[in-house]
Amino acid sequence: MDKIMELRDKRVKLWEEAKNFLDSHTDEDGKLSAEDAAAYEKMEADVVEMKKAIDRLERQAAIDRELDKPTSKPITNQPENAKPAGGFRATDEYKQDMLTAMRTRFRNISNVLQEGNDQQGGYLVPVEYDNRLIDVLNEENIMRSLATKITTSGEHKINIAATKPAAAWIEEGGALTFGDATFDQIMMDAYKLHIAIKITEELLYDNAFNLESYVIEQFGKAMANAEEDAFLNGDGKGKPTGLFHETLGGQATCTTNTANISADDVINLIYTLKRPYRRNASFIINDQTISALRKLKDNNGAYIWQPAVIAGEPDRLFGYALHTSQYAPAGGAGKPILAFGDYSYYNIGDRGSRSMQQLRELFAGNGMVGYLMKERVDGRLILPEAVQILKVKGGA
């Protein structure tokens, strides 16, 4: 391909030289001398021949690409019926065979499971399981309900407008001024999160025990807790970068007037956030700080806390929704205590499906079976100004 581009550049230059030669050697009647005509025809012939050479190389490259394609695909044992929409992981057969494999310590495996087979004994979670696990994560993890979720297949680049051009008034006939529009990039990777549980063989072999619900619930809650902690407090080293990160999280431009939070501090925080972000803004706060906020009153002695009037709706503070998390910082001198912003600018990147693996021999001696669930995920606030952080007065 580099050779083709090189020849194209040479052909363009050669044609420009031929046209310039013709312009400079033509007399007033548009005629050339016999010697100049021969020279021009030679240059023109070279341009035509170079086009033929380029065409040959392009045909050669096309043939090479065709020959590089695989001539066959691996043979796999699949049911005779047509593959259903969503793949075999979405079928009831796959789900039942997954449960059978788990209860028999993966000794009884049917052909339906071959789609998810790997050399380590791992199996892709059936589609229904995966969706229900996401439901658990969304319910337990406040950041998954507030942030923007994307699915990535590799390292993901997010383009950010670093600076924007500004308009300026000029006098009639005055000189124009030009502003620069610059752009930056944020990279999202995928960090591995795993959860392992142990199940006694008695429970595993007892069909009366709802193993399916137990596994999904335990995995879902554990994953949700680990994710929410990382999405809020992660340092970006082997885990996502949290919303409260000192330099890569929200902007910590507000500080309380005293060691205790007041209504004035909350108002200052709200109006530090730029107006466009306030449209979809809400608070994130630790459970321990709620007690102090619920006691805040206005000048008329009325509590500024607004309890939700509809079941399932969040409480409100100064008209904005308030979300609580046990992983949000609890404050302390110089420490963050409250976040306010539009959390859709926090991106959560999921890398593919979750997988389950049986730990065959690790717990064999004590009559238990282990199961391991793994996922790869990253999170990053892509626009720090969209979230403002309130810190407690005192400390560095």
Results as ranks from 00 to 15, higher is better:
134 I>W: 10
196 A>S: 14
51 K>W: 02
331 G>T: 06
10 K>L: 08
392 V>H: 00
332 G>T: 05
184 D>A: 08
360 R>K: 14
331 G>Y: 03
214 Y>P: 02
371 Y>I: 14
11 R>A: 07
78 Q>K: 04
357 Q>D: 07
50 M>C: 05
163 T>C: 10
160 I>D: 06
207 N>V: 12
81 N>T: 14
333 A>M: 11
148 T>V: 07
70 P>L: 15
97 D>L: 05
175 A>I: 11
246 E>Q: 09
308 A>R: 04
283 F>V: 07
320 Y>D: 11
236 G>R: 09
191 Y>N: 15
225 N>I: 15
147 A>S: 15
190 A>V: 11
75 I>F: 04
204 L>V: 12
236 G>E: 11
3 K>Y: 06
16 E>C: 04
278 R>Y: 00
341 G>E: 13
25 H>Y: 03
250 G>Y: 00
92 D>R: 09
63 I>H: 11
181 A>M: 15
116 G>E: 14
41 E>T: 13
252 A>P: 01
80 E>N: 05
262 S>L: 06
24 S>F: 05
336 P>I: 06
293 L>G: 01
47 V>P: 00
198 K>Y: 00
101 A>P: 05
292 A>I: 08
342 D>H: 00
315 D>V: 04
46 D>M: 05
48 V>L: 11
230 A>G: 08
61 A>W: 07
152 T>Y: 05
304 I>L: 15
143 M>K: 06
108 N>A: 15
213 S>V: 14
330 A>W: 00
53 A>S: 12
115 E>W: 12
41 E>N: 10
100 T>Q: 08
293 L>I: 15
30 G>R: 12
